[in-house]
Nucleic acid binder design. Structure first.
Length: 269
DNA sequence: GCCATATGGAAAG
DNA sequence: TTTCCCTATGGCA
């Protein structure tokens, strides 16, 4: 479930599990063999997250740059490493005495240096989870004719927001995702930014995306809890055709920039 | 077994 | 704007 909160949480978990110690880096699948050999056995100094990009820092100014993409997974598992052959397509495995971590299906997994890391970061907009100044994002949205729903997903505008936080933050602000960025008043943009900071911090802490306000939660509304494989309690994401939790209107769905888009046609303008 | 689907992004046209 | 990549899972024959 990789939006920015997943990556920031992962950076913390990796630093806690492996930081300051020599770590085995392997490529069970074989596709990361050359990169793994470069850092295998060196000290993992710490992991950093920027948007949806993960940088695992090793001694010698080497970084393993990981991007999970749409369905990548990276999880830390407490020791001992299960005996027997590694099951499935494990691109990279980190191993220490008391923990290991397996990476599967990433869009990117590569060893880079400081300059390449800086180049990746230079392409990203401010990240709500890093405490960045939102001014560049607000300015860019404020002068763009592109839909606000597309702009929020553009990592060069805001780093770390994915399809769920995009849909949910626009719903909570009452803004139609199709609305051009330049037509959204700046105070509303500031409110959306502050909301993203708060929602995404909560996501880092809980490991899932919950966006429903207390007064609309299942218990408060006398409805059954949401049952969905993404695990969180949300207003709009993947709820097309179901009644809006606030007004009862069936939620709408469409496509924008090749991604699923969800909104309430009554609550969002 | 086959197919559709997914919280992403880069490259190709 | 479309295509492609990477993997796991659930629904359906």
């Amino acid at each position: 479930m990789p939006e920015g909160h997943t990556i920031h949480r992962l950076a913390g978990e990796l630093t806690a599990a492996f930081g300051g110690r020599p770590v085995g880096v392997a490529s069970p699948q074989g596709r990361f063999a050359a990169g793994a050999a470069v850092v295998d056995g060196s000290v993992l100094e710490g992991a950093q997250a920027y948007g949806k990009h993960l940088f695992i820092g090793f001694a010698g100014r080497r970084w393993v740059h990981v991007h999970l993409g749409l369905y990548g997974k990276f999880g830390v598992v407490a020791a001992p490493v299960p005996p027997g052959p590694v099951v499935g397509e494990v691109r990279m495995r980190l191993t220490a005495a008391d923990a290991h971590a397996d990476l599967r299906g990433p869009t990117r997994c590569e060893v880079i240096g400081d300059d390449e890391k800086a180049a990746v970061e230079a392409r990203l907009g401010p990240d709500p989870l890093r405490g960045d100044d939102p001014a560049p994002a607000l300015a860019r949205i404020g002068r763009s004719r592109a839909p606000i729903g597309v702009l929020l997903m553009d990592q060069a505008v805001v780093a770390g927001v994915g399809n769920v936080y995009r849909a949910e933050s626009l719903y909570r602000a009452g803004i139609d995702p199709a609305r051009p960025g330049s037509t959204v008043p700046e105070p509303v943009l500031r409110e959306i930014w502050a909301d993203l900071v708060s929602l995404m911090r909560r996501g880092v802490h809980s490991g899932r995306i919950d966006t429903v306000r207390p007064e609309h939660e299942p218990e408060a509304m006398g409805r059954p809890p949401r049952v969905d494989d993404h695990g969180g309690e949300v207003y709009v994401y993947r709820r097309s055709g179901q009644p809006c939790l606030v007004c009862g209107t069936p939620m709408a769905a469409g496509r924008a920039a090749a991604r699923n888009l969800f909104w309430c046609p009554n609550c969002q303008h």
